[in-house]
Design a protein around this nucleic acid. Structure first.
Lengths: 210, 210
DNA sequence: TAGATTGTTAATCGATTAACAATC
DNA sequence: TAGATTGTTAATCGATTAACAATC
């Protein structure tokens, strides 16, 4: 189904397509042309067709794309037909918020455990789960088929924990720590640098000031 | 100091430079060459020099860049020398986490208020602030010189609130809602689509599977 | 069949990298 | 001065857009 080596920039557009197709589905659309979709999404129809064609032909000449089919296929490309078991490492404000934010389950992402290294909060409960000690991370990952670790802790801790995760051969790291992690190529890292994002906003605000 | 129309891709790299320069500063470096920095950051030295030169010459031939000076200058470019007053709209898990996450203050971002439309939580306290009714948003923005609104609410609500914010002529919107906002060009939007990010990670995990 | 719209190739545009003259 | 390294121009690479033949 999938071409080898899809460029990063194409990948980063897929979730947005998925989101718009979900909306179209909810609104009762059965088919959509690249032209109509391009108007909705503010991108060129050319780009839409090019992007979709990286993964094979989803459309039909003279008709366009079937909304349901396209939605399903992009979901599969994104791996949303698979189940993922997550753990959250770092039970601070953000970690707890993500643990409680359970729209992820709808897409197949299940939080199986939450960890912290602070003995004052270890043992407390978050969303029915007892906060565990990060010392016990490695066996938990193996026993519970964890494939994604969410890092919501300070950067010093994150670098440490990343080493453990590498040794556990975790599939993916969703990194909210304010640092870049050095891991082997076989381990996938997706960074969410909130402070970087806020700085970008600040830049834009002041860009046209002087 | 600033060229007109810096490309998005350059802007998005600035916070990362800022982060690395902060680290270098903390480690006691006084100067750094584009070559050394390129090794640390895993980008080409050419790119570093090109990027910095969009904003004028920060370096000196034969010497390199002064770490402190460069750090300060990039901070100014990012608007971090200015004070920003924020409000958080949506006092759910994520909103409360961001309200409590006060590393932002260090960079000049001050949370001045938190709002929600749910009458059950209006009046409760988060980090010493009483949760206010979103109905009272507009006057609060004007009276408190709010320039950034953080949207941490469901998409239906976000679209509504965005209209209000536009009418208040807010400078920036930091949007965590799972939708794109349609606002005039004069209003800067920075999106943080967490579910998009998680989907990208999922894609990478399954990319080389079959 | 005629009209619509895709899939795909070719042209354009922009971003990255390489190279080197300027200069500290 | 000689060495190092920037600032900047030129070459390359990749991504976007335009165009159109294929086809439903």
């Amino acid at each position: 189904m999938q071409d080898k080596n899809i460029s990063q920039v194409v990948i980063s557009r897929l979730p947005r397509y998925f989101r718009y197709l979900g909306d179209l589905k909810d609104e009762g659309f059965e088919r959509i042309s690249s032209g109509e979709l391009s108007k909705r999404m503010n991108v060129t129809a050319s780009q839409i067709r090019q992007d979709f064609n990286h993964f094979g032909g989803f459309g039909q000449q003279g008709y366009g794309y079937n909304v349901n089919y396209l939605y399903e296929e992009i979901g599969k490309i994104l791996g949303l037909d698979k189940r993922h078991n997550l753990i959250i490492v770092g039970a601070g404000n953000l970690g707890q918020a993500l643990a409680n934010y359970m729209n992820f389950e709808k897409r197949g992402f299940f939080v199986k455990g939450i960890f912290d290294c602070n003995s004052e909060i270890i043992g407390k409960k978050v969303r029915g789960m007892t906060i565990m000690d990060t010392k016990d991370l490695a066996p938990f990952i193996k026993e519970n088929n964890i494939d994604i670790a969410v890092l919501t802790l300070p950067k010093q801790g994150a670098v440490e924990i990343a080493k453990t995760l590498v040794s556990c051969n975790i599939s993916g790291i969703w990194n909210f720590a304010h640092c870049d992690l050095e891991v082997p190529d076989s381990i996938n890292v997706e960074n969410v640098h909130l402070s970087d994002s806020l700085m970008k906003l600040s830049f834009k605000i002041h860009e046209n000031e002087n």
